[in-house]
Design a protein around this nucleic acid. Structure first.
Lengths: 344, 344
DNA sequence: ATGAAAGCGCTAACAC
DNA sequence: GTGTTAGCGCTTTCAT
């Protein structure tokens, strides 16, 4: 495709009557090269429009300066922020990101992992799909000691580094808040609990109940995919319930918001009849009326943390193997949707 | 880093007592290779865990199977969809995406373009930052005939392919609708009009006014960055106006929504006092009350279209040079925020 | 149908 | 401080 011939270090070497090795060194500020020579090399390189050939270099050095990222979906506020944080660090450190989505299926996740492996990414950052129940498709990376960091949706019991927030604690706090607002029957909408993120939130919910001597009722647990549509369906379900809940804690905001919408249309008052809390601090949480109480999920921070640790490991500045889990601070945000008392 | 030694075609060749050339051919289903040999090669390759070395291959073939993407920001609903569409096509065609954000600054955009160039992406997909006023930083690509497609935020008067929606027409339609709902003083919030996207919307707005014999009033044009905060500020401004508008057409949904929010708090009724329309069909548009009339921006389609055209060009299936602009269909969505008449 | 051999552009060990 | 040299793993032309 290239029209004009590419300039190589040999072209520069020839014109300067020096060896290619010297050019190679001069270009990368090797200490043992004469300043004058160095300057000459760099000037000519610029003049000729020289650009280093990454393949040749990688072929020699056996690494790619590329980090693979596999996420369930790009299209959430949270994930956009995660990627943003990663991109920030990666660019600054001279790494490129190769991003792919599993679209929440293990099948695509497995295929993506294989692609990343074949593309010889230097390291991999992954957030698991809901479907994923084991991580044998990442074993090639582990065997080859290609560093692998999980974030947000991390696998259970494994020796890879994981970056998460304390979902248990956050959910406990949300539930405790709802209880302190007077809720006695709190419905919890949780995602697929094979996933640690959701099982932890459920655990936090249960513990808060227990600590307040409220009997756990599994009719108040609804598992679905947390989509907008699922939210509306939960509302329909609530409307049909003999004994309705007086509070709803949804494991994400989108689902909470659509549940609220449908309930409001049916004349339910929020928070008076039913108080609401969500999770993620998605933009819609600040738009729905009343504004939704939620947990701010530090996506940007998470992305930065994951990328930083990976790159530090890659550059030998620190090792990933010593750390197991990093827990990032989340932030509980109280808004009107949960304030039955009009005070906190 | 790799622990076990990497398997190369030479290892396979040696074990099978054939030449590396045959292995290379056998691996890629070359027609002139004996079926039996081919099978033997592929079986052994699998058994040994052989993976082709992309660098060596690229070094020879002089391409990377990588497509660069530069966008202002990843974190919008629209852009997530665009990337999703690109990723879909790229993966299917065996290409990888390298993604970077300009964060709306030319400085970062220039740096990103340079990185992409040095990484020798096979092609580039870009949506310009607001700040960008010329595209000389993309000239290296043009000179080297590395295909370059702009989407959404495309430059003026250039010979590169661009993929857009008809912003003029969409804005005309929105404005016409507002007028048909009885609006006589329509305030238009537009982004930076050095950008074609926004100047086109402004043009559509003006033309609709003209066609309805409404005199254009530049006090009703507000230029800002279309952020949430800017939306609230517009509301403050409206509240202070002597002659308030009876309709607002915002160039994006986020800004419209926050403007509505602030106005509602001040007791303005929507759509009765002021009708609203936005642009993008962002998730918040379906959550705000009343639901926001808007224009659905086909992000996923746009991403797919851009990637498809680039890859077709790359694979020689069709050329980019024959096409100049592709206009995708957008969809006008009428919701309650603009229905003064309670009918369309 | 298969092999020999050259070379893609760069790096690094070793020599001077 | 600079040059020589030998690959890195693959593809491809030209032989056979």
């Amino acid at each position: 495709m290239p029209q004009e011939k590419e300039i190589t270090i040999y072209d520069i070497a020839r014109q300067l009557n020096i060896s290619a090795a010297t050019v190679s060194r001069g270009l990368k500020d090797h200490p043992a090269i004469n300043k004058v020579t160095k300057k000459k090399i760099q000037d000519l390189a610029k003049k000729l429009g020289y650009r280093s050939n990454t393949f040749a270099r990688n072929l020699r050095k056996k690494h790619t300066n590329t980090i693979g990222v596999i996420v369930p979906r790009l299209s959430s506020h949270f994930m956009s922020n995660v990627i943003g944080g990663m991109e920030n660090i990666a660019t600054a450190e001279g790494y490129n990101l190769i991003i792919s989505q599993s679209l929440e299926t293990s099948k695509k996740e497995i295929a993506n992992a294989a692609t990343m492996f074949n593309n010889r990414v230097d390291g991999l950052l992954v957030s698991l799909s809901v479907e994923t129940e084991n991580i044998i498709h990442f074993e090639p990376f582990i065997n080859k000691e290609i560093p692998l960091i999980f974030f947000d949706r991390i696998p259970d019991n494994n020796k890879c580094m994981g970056i998460i927030i304390d979902n248990y604690k956050a959910a406990y706090e949300v539930t405790q808040h709802l209880i302190s607002q007077g809720c006695k029957r709190i419905l919890h909408i949780c995602g697929n609990t094979t996933n640690r993120v959701y099982s932890e939130r459920l655990r936090g919910y249960k513990q808060a109940l227990a600590d307040n001597k409220i009997v756990f009722d599994d009719k108040l647990i609804i598992k679905n995919n947390l989509s907008e549509q699922a939210g509306s369906e939960v509302a329909e379900h609530i409307l049909k319930m003999k004994k309705r809940p007086d509070g709803v804690f949804s494991a994400n905001d989108a689902c909470a918001v659509y549940c609220m919408k449908t309930l409001k249309q049916a004349g339910i008052r929020i928070p008076e009849d039913i108080a609401f809390a969500g999770f993620n601090n998605d933009p819609v949480s600040k738009v729905v009326e009343p504004n939704l109480t939620t947990v701010n999920y530090p996506g940007y921070e998470m992305g930065k943390t994951a990328a930083t640790h990976l790159i530090n490991h890659l550059k030998g500045r620190s090792s990933i193997n010593s750390t197991n889990i990093i827990i990032l601070r989340s932030e509980f945000i109280i808004r009107e949707s949960s304030l039955k008392n009009n005070k906190i």
